[in-house]
């Protein structure tokens, strides 16, 4: 299965991993990390915004968060999606 990721699990960062979803499945977002229970809605919104702006769908996006601000989450999501699209599976 094609996957791509970006980021780290270091403090104030997050690791975003993108993998192929079923056709027509839209976006499936999984969150893990200490703060995700509290911030899940805003984190999902941030990821969705980036995916929509990049025209990405039918993907599974998994976030391992270690206290990343929204702007970091967005930057890591963009990098992971760009890598997924570019075939870079780093």
């Amino acid at each position: 299965m094609k996957t791509a990721s970006a980021g780290t699990v270091e403090s104030m960062d997050c690791l975003v991993t993108v993998s192929e979803g079923a056709p027509g499945s839209g976006l499936s977002i999984q969150l893990s990390g200490a703060a995700t229970a509290r911030f899940a809605p805003t984190m999902r919104k941030a990821v969705q915004e980036v995916a929509t702006a990049m025209g990405a769908s039918d993907l599974s996006i998994s976030i391992q968060d270690n206290g990343a601000l929204d702007l970091i989450l967005k930057a890591r999501t963009e990098a992971a999606l760009a890598r997924y699209r570019g075939g870079d599976t780093a």
């Binding site: 702007l71 930057a75 870079d88």
Partner: peptide
């Protein structure tokens, strides 16, 4: 080398903030 793309996006967004 393999992180140049992600760092460029990250730095850009931190600058915008």
């Amino acid at each position: 080398m393999r992180e140049k793309d992600a760092a460029r996006i990250l730095v850009r967004d931190v600058l915008r903030q």
